[in-house]
Amino acid sequence: MRIDSIFTFGGAGAQERPLRWRRLAGMSVGLVYLFFPVMDIVTGEVTGARAVWGALGLIAYVACFLTTALVPKEYGESTPLTYGSMGGATLLAVGLPFLFGGGWLTLPIYTTVIYSMALRPAWALLGMLVMGAVVALVGLLRQHDPAGTVVLLFQVVTLGILFMSVRNTRMLMLQLHQARDEVARLAASEERLRIARDLHDLLGHSLSLIVLKSELAGRLAENGAERAVTEILDIESVARQALVEVRDAVSGYRQRGLAGELDGARAALEAAGTQVTVRLAGTPLPDAVDGLLGWAVREGATNVLRHARAARCEITVVHDEEATVLEIMDDGRGAAAYGPGSGLSGLTERVEAAGGAVAAGPCETGFALRVRVPRAVGSRT
């Protein structure tokens, strides 16, 4: 058995341990049932020592209930003190009506409300049956008005079911808030992965180009060639552009176009001494396909720069009614040490998420990267 919640009215899910005054506000609704035994003492129907014991019993009952409801605990947790106080309230709800009868039969009703709000449905139903039996037995032994006893039994059932429904609603609200928090956490995690992937793709290409141009500038400077200054200025330009792209990627506003990536790939590869041939066929690409293939060109060109040491590289883009296909082929040495890295894995994830496919590996002339994206990607945007 587990105590799940005690009158946590207001602010569901906002905090797992509701404020005590909110719990007290919820409990005060049920305190109206204590009016009848209190009136028995005030009006003199119960007098003398019995009145003193009755008052002490009521005080003990309220104390047990307050302890049950207000003992600090995390949502869904319980303590021995919680169980003990609920047990004390149960004993008083059974014993006091047997001793005093009449209006004291409202205590089992109030205790049923406690069960309904505090326990799982199966245990709450069991408690409701026990309290109903107490009302029926006390009404019979104390010769209570039969009609009044039936009304009390009806209240035990209806209020028990009502507050079980209230508790279930509270539980669903809490689960909803927890699910919303989990969605937010997953979204943040996905955003971190996006940023990491974008930074890898952006910086891998830019830094490779900076390294190549730095090596070239160094050799030219050793020979006293004036072109070294031009290469150094290009390095500065590439570094500034990389900084802008990183900021855009972190902000989520970067637009990666195929044409711009083709120009960047051509410039980087030619700076490395690779002759580049670009072939385009088909109608203008949809925005979604254009951006995705821009990433593919950047990744493919970066791999050629890093691993291939190729003399020639061909980039072909064919777009027809069914799909768009990008092929990057080189005659370098990258095929000999081929192994899919994080960049290619990230590209594969992007393409497969769009319903496409990526194939990479050695070919007759060197190494080939092939990306196929269905036309449906463009039609959805």
Rank of each mutant, 00 (worst) to 15 (best):
residue 75 Y to Q: 15
residue 102 G to T: 04
residue 195 I to P: 01
residue 248 D to M: 08
residue 67 T to P: 01
residue 326 L to N: 04
residue 39 M to F: 04
residue 232 I to H: 01
residue 14 A to M: 07
residue 135 V to N: 12
residue 341 G to Y: 03
residue 194 R to W: 05
residue 220 L to R: 07
residue 102 G to R: 08
residue 200 H to A: 13
residue 83 Y to S: 13
residue 244 V to Y: 14
residue 369 L to G: 08
residue 168 N to A: 13
residue 278 V to F: 02
residue 263 D to T: 11
residue 138 V to D: 09
residue 284 P to V: 01
residue 289 V to Y: 01
residue 305 L to S: 11
residue 306 R to S: 03
residue 59 I to V: 13
residue 117 M to Y: 01
residue 3 I to M: 15
residue 297 V to Q: 09
residue 204 G to W: 08
residue 106 T to R: 10
residue 379 S to Y: 09
residue 335 A to C: 01
residue 364 E to P: 08
residue 76 G to Y: 05
residue 244 V to N: 10
residue 308 A to R: 06
residue 227 R to K: 12
residue 253 Y to I: 15
residue 198 D to M: 05
residue 56 L to C: 15
residue 289 V to F: 08
residue 353 A to K: 10
residue 80 P to D: 07
residue 267 A to G: 02
residue 203 L to Q: 12
residue 353 A to Q: 11
residue 72 P to T: 00
residue 260 G to C: 03
residue 360 A to D: 12
residue 114 I to G: 04
residue 174 L to T: 12
residue 165 S to V: 11
residue 160 G to M: 05
residue 291 G to D: 09
residue 203 L to D: 12
residue 29 V to N: 12
residue 356 G to R: 05
residue 36 F to T: 14
residue 94 V to H: 03
residue 26 G to L: 04
residue 337 A to W: 08
residue 315 I to E: 02
residue 261 E to D: 04
residue 347 L to E: 09
residue 155 Q to D: 11
residue 96 L to M: 00
residue 87 G to A: 08
residue 325 V to I: 09
residue 198 D to K: 02
residue 198 D to F: 05
residue 287 D to A: 14
residue 141 L to F: 13
residue 146 P to W: 00
residue 172 L to W: 11
residue 58 L to K: 08
residue 102 G to H: 09
residue 288 A to L: 04
residue 207 L to E: 13
residue 98 F to P: 08
residue 255 Q to T: 14
residue 252 G to K: 00
residue 115 Y to N: 09
residue 319 H to E: 06
residue 341 G to A: 05
residue 182 E to V: 12
residue 201 D to Q: 15
residue 256 R to M: 09
residue 39 M to H: 02
residue 146 P to Q: 05
residue 314 E to S: 15
residue 32 V to Y: 02
residue 133 A to R: 06
residue 276 V to K: 10
residue 93 A to W: 02
residue 330 D to A: 03
residue 292 L to F: 01
residue 284 P to A: 04
residue 128 M to E: 10
residue 73 K to V: 13
residue 39 M to R: 02
residue 4 D to N: 12
residue 138 V to F: 03
residue 14 A to V: 07
residue 311 A to F: 04
residue 349 E to A: 10
residue 165 S to I: 09
residue 129 L to H: 00
residue 263 D to M: 07
residue 135 V to W: 03
residue 123 W to M: 15
residue 28 S to V: 11
residue 148 G to H: 14
residue 46 V to R: 04
residue 266 R to H: 03
residue 333 R to F: 07
residue 27 M to W: 03
